[in-house]
Nucleic acid binder design. Sequence first.
DNA 1: TATGAAATTCCCTAAAC
DNA 2: GTTTAGGGAATTTCATA
Lengths: 154, 154
Amino acid sequence: MQSSPVDDVDRELLDQLQRDAGRTLRELGDLVGLSPSAVQRRITRYRADGVLAGQVAVLDAARLGVVLAVVLVTLELDSPAHHHAFAERVRGVGEVQQCYALTGRWDYLVVLSTPDAERCREVGDELFRRDPNVKRYEVLPVFDAVKTGLAVSL
Amino acid sequence: MQSSPVDDVDRELLDQLQRDAGRTLRELGDLVGLSPSAVQRRITRYRADGVLAGQVAVLDAARLGVVLAVVLVTLELDSPAHHHAFAERVRGVGEVQQCYALTGRWDYLVVLSTPDAERCREVGDELFRRDPNVKRYEVLPVFDAVKTGLAVSL
DNA sequence: TATGAAATTCCCTAAAC
DNA sequence: GTTTAGGGAATTTCATA
C-alpha cells in the first residue's frame, strides 16, 4: 500500500499492461527482459501498492452502435455539499462512463454512453435538466471516437 | 466478424467483463449460470465478432500523481483533410488519452494524461498552440476524477 | 447450434536458491 | 533476480439435446 520506487522496467511493464493485459507472464517477461516469476512478483507488488487497480475488458463501442455524448456542467451553488451530492449521483448512473471535476469555466465534464440517441437524451434530461443543483449544461454529441483508453503516460 | 445476436446472457457476461476481466471462466460461469466451457466459447465469439476489442490494465492515476486535463478544440478549416490530419496527429501522441470528434460549438474533446503539470502545459502548447490548423482551444485542468472507465451500457 | 463434462496442455503460483 | 515443482485454469475434444 506504500509507494514503491518505480524503475524503467516498471514503467515498461505497466505500459505494456495498459496496452494489453491478456498476455502471459512469459510474453511480458520477454518484452522487458525478465523471467516470468520476476514479472509476477512485480505485478503482485503493483496490486499491493494500489498502483494497479484491476483489468477490464474493452468493447468496440462503434460496432455495438453505442452513442456517446460529452456534457459540460456548472452547478448552481459552489458548496462542498452540493459538489459531493452531484458526484455521488453521477457515480451511481450506469450510463455515465466518466466524470471529471474541472477548474475553469465549467465545473464538470461528463461522458455519457448509451445504447441509442433517444436513451442518451433521456439520461441527459433526467440527470441535468431536472436537477435544480445544475445551473447550466451543454451537451456535445460525439460523432467519432478518434482515440479512447485509460492509459496514463509514465 | 459478423454481427451475432446478443442475448441476455451475452449482455450480463459483457457487463461483468467490463467490470473485471481478471476472473476465471468458472467464476464468470457461476455469475451467468453457464459452464466454464460455454463462457469461453462465448468470449471467443465476442473476439471473432470484434465486439470484444481486448483487455487492459487500469492504473490508479491519482496514486501515480498523474495530471489530467480536458481540452476543447476548434479547427481553422472544416475540410475532411484537415480533420483527418488532426485526428492522426493526436492519435500518435502518448499523452493524449482520449479524443472525440464533436458536433456543436467545439470540434474536438481531447483528454490529456501527463506525469506532471509542467509536462501537461508543454504537450498542450506543442499540440494546439503551435498548430496553425487549430483556430482556438480551451484547457480545462481536471481537479478530481469522479468516475473513470470505458464501460458501455448495453 | 447450442450445451456440459472430461482429458490435455499450459500457465500461474509459491517455494527454494 | 532465476529455477523448480505443484495446483489450477484455459483449451480442446467429445457426447448430447
